[in-house]
Amino acid sequence: MKTSDTDILIVPGWSGSGPDHWQSRWEAKLPTARRVEQEDWYKPTRDGWANRIVAAVRAATKPVVIVAHSAGCSAVAHAAEHLKPHEVAGAFLVAPASERAKRAIPGMADDFSAIPQKPLPFRSVLIASATDPYCTPDEARALAEAWGSEFVDAGDSGHINTESGHGPWPDGLLRFAGFMKNLTAI
């Protein structure tokens, strides 16, 4: 699939991915990308965030590809429970926040941090770092297995965000292009 043939939904995590974050840069660079805006970026709730994702998917006019980061990955897993088969072509999930993030991220509701453990109804890849403070490698592998996602070890990359030196993240963009190339139209 080509990016021009899809609606790319950017799903940030807690705080909404600032202007230097790779998600914001991709949103500006990819013409069919748009951010799924949340009512409150600092107080994630399961139903609030999931409903916004479901609404964005249903408003799309082309096959949907989701690009999620951190708590946005959890939000996608919560939203997946409400999506119909074939509403999403694929999801590119980066640096998921495990249930341990509830202790580190202020304002995260208990219902949000209880992450679904069911296979996602669309193709997905989960990229995780060995040194992510919000999700251990074992937790990330378990999420990938539960969700039916291809697992990619990003090595010593922190939380794969601006603070860990991943503003532009060219390696991620190359990996995303490979993911897109292997997606089929729904």
Rank of each mutant, 00 (worst) to 15 (best):
D156W: 02
R35K: 07
R100I: 13
I66A: 05
S70N: 08
A56F: 10
S15W: 14
S15A: 08
A68K: 01
A140C: 13
A55C: 10
T61M: 13
C73K: 02
W49T: 07
H82S: 12
A101R: 04
D47L: 12
S15K: 13
V65Q: 01
L174V: 13
P63A: 04
E37N: 09
I105G: 04
T6D: 03
S17I: 00
L83A: 02
S124Y: 04
R52I: 06
I53F: 02
A140T: 13
M108E: 10
V125T: 11
P85W: 13
I10R: 09
P106Q: 14
F92T: 09
V94N: 03
K84R: 12
K2C: 03
Y134A: 07
P106H: 10
H166E: 08
A146S: 13
G18C: 03
P133I: 15
K118S: 14
P137Q: 02
A114D: 07
L9T: 08
D5C: 03
R35Y: 06
Y42D: 15
I105Y: 09
A75S: 14
D7F: 06
F122M: 08
L143K: 05
A50S: 12
V54F: 13
T3C: 11
E99C: 10
D7G: 06
D171P: 05
P168H: 11
A77K: 08
Q38Y: 12
F112Q: 07
K62E: 01
A177G: 10
R25W: 08
P137I: 02
E139L: 04
S157D: 03
Q117I: 13
R141V: 12
G18I: 07
F112M: 13
K102E: 14
A79S: 11
A97N: 12
G48R: 00
A130G: 11
A144L: 05
K102I: 09
T136S: 15
R25G: 04
Q23C: 05
I10N: 05
C135Y: 03
D171A: 10
E37V: 14
V57P: 09
A77F: 10
E145H: 14
T61L: 09
G172T: 01
H166Q: 14
G178P: 04
I66V: 10
S164W: 14
A146V: 03
D171G: 11
A33H: 02
L173R: 03
Y42E: 12
Y42N: 13
E150Y: 12
